[in-house]
Nucleic acid binder design. Structure first.
Lengths: 201, 201, 201, 201
DNA sequence: GATGAATGAGGCTTCATTCAT
DNA sequence: TATGAATGAAGCCTCATTCAT
């Protein structure tokens, strides 16, 4: 009499465990036992559901990106058809709420950036994540250019600059939050982006 | 007739060893043996010259920051008295040359950001480093405001935004360089900064 | 369907391993690997069941003292109500049987004395152990005084002297056994104690 | 032009260094560097004057014993010809002055006892030291018996018992001094010895 | 004689992973 | 599925000893 499979739930639990631990200790610092404890599971079970620590990380990245992009797409969608509104929605989704809400995800994201340097696998996924985000931005920018709301410039240049600013705010917020006056990140980036995109009116 | 002291040289060698290894494997991934090998020294010697691995990291951060700030100050100085020229010099020092020259230092800097989340010590130093860089930027911005070349805004907001963009370009360059069109980082940030600072003429 | 827990047994095994090794090499000389080998366990397992080498020592001290005091209390109990009989039982429990039986425990006890000088933790426990033994002795002596079988003197002075003699026999037996004529320790201490306690009849 | 040899002085310095360190950290805990530091000498010099750490210990034991026996012989000599006076002098030399004066030497002696269990070399020397001390005691006792001041008993039994008490006081004083009421060690041992030796008048 | 840098083995501990149940 | 014991490699660091000067 087989018990009902709960693999998905367990995997989610474990990924959540890694998220918690990793936000404080990084990836290498997160031992299997730490993860198990944070997930309230036994150590053996972790390797039952994941072949290796690296696989958990893979799962975590996927979850983080999927959630982020889903939320982002929704926000952009809700912004309507105006490219400037869409741009603002894009920026706010990344930087609003006390300049980057969820500090755990923030810390993990920064840790992932460092991990990407060491591991080709992580780098590939991390870059794909950034590319996915940038894709949304490019769509908005191209739309703005088409509508003549933005100047005629190379979208990739502007998009990568905006993306870089967001990434940079993440790093600074996670390591030296005091340097950023509260609630200024999103407005500042909006101003910068307007300069870059030569927004009309 | 003792052997001539060479501690300074050895310490520099070891720090250089950490730099090399860390740029590929991160801090935790850089084992004592790795560092010794990269420095072409015996493992025991590492701990003869440094009390702990953390101390080597401390030395590395100091070296990185001191060199960076020295170069930065010189560039700003050479830029003359015009605040806009100074701003450009500041930006170029960080982002010119194929969008951030020394890839090793770049990778290490990103790794340090991640390490800063885990270790209070590293965080303190890292934040101090960022603060030092920002201080230069604030000086430039205040100078521009005084001269009425920049609009009248809160310098810290602009400074942190510019700093964030630089940090973000570092991360993206180190992890997903393809996303940045070559040689566009400095110009893009200059454009953004002009928008933000309401540069006159 | 988990593997049945055997932590208690394993811990006992490891403590036994330390006892064996320590009796020959002392505490510092007993390496983790030595202990594991003596316990017929893998090195990693030692730290799975004990947080540190110091914890194993703690366990060993506890075991040694608990066993010793349990045996001692039983012997005193069996001696009946006569204080002189109790005293003799006390002395014999420590010094009979070829002048201190278990040579392993003896050697370990001497090593613990040395360790007590270096480590506050060990010192505290060691002193507590001595105090526990002395407590039994004090009870006997006070009982003898009450019954007017012993002279009227300060019990602590006599008790500490008797305790010192026992401790000293341990050291000499463990390091220069030849100096003690066989089977003379207990009788000699009994004679000394009688002089000290002014035993009547 | 050879410089004046100072080997003896240096050796004494180094031995003194070991004494200091060993009284706090034991023999294994006393690293070569520790010893050098305590002796205010360079690490290299330690091995220039002593072939190994073990040799320093050998030197220390010799110094400790020679000094001790010299002082002891003098005290006994000063006590005159009365065997009881000699006995008291013997006891006082070991236990007077706040129950064992020099705490450093005391701690080292206890550490040596533990070391004797591990190392045959140390054991041989340690046993020889004890034997030397006991020899003095035996001489006194035999003298007392001859003079009919002591009863007719086996001198070695009494001597080893007295020696054991002294050793034991050392251990207790070094590890749990509180258990010994101040200034009671010598008087208590005198009383015990009188019982044992059946001292007349 | 003297200095202090250099060596390399070994110690304690952590950890990803496997295994018996 | 689940548990938690078990393994063995590897990491950081200490240390007696040697060596170049």
């Amino acid at each position: 009499m087989p018990r009902p499979p709960n693999t998905d739930q367990r995997r989610a639990q474990i990924i959540e465990g890694l998220l918690k631990v990793m936000s404080k200790k990084g990836y290498e610092g997160a031992s299997t036992q730490d993860i198990a404890r944070a997930a309230k599971l036994s150590p053996g079970l972790v390797h039952y559901h994941f072949g290796s620590k690296a696989e958990i990380l893979e799962g975590l990245m996927k979850r983080l990106l999927d959630q982020h992009l889903a939320g982002l797409d929704q926000k952009i969608d809700e912004a309507g058809d105006d490219p400037l509104d869409q741009l603002d929605a894009f920026i706010e989704h990344h930087l609003a709420t006390g300049d980057t809400a969820n500090p755990q995800a923030l810390a993990v994201w920064v840790a992932l950036g460092a991990e990407a340097i060491k591991s080709k696998d992580v780098r590939t996924r991390y870059a794909a994540g950034l590319a996915g985000i940038m894709e949304r931005l490019l769509t908005i920018i191209r739309h703005g250019i088409d509508e003549r709301r933005f100047g005629d410039m190379q979208p990739r240049v502007s998009a990568s600059a905006i993306l870089a600013t967001i990434e940079g705010y993440f790093v600074v917020a996670a390591t030296a939050r005091d340097l950023i006056p509260p609630y200024t990140a999103a407005p500042a980036l909006k101003a910068m982006a307007r300069g870059l995109l030569e927004v009309k009116r």
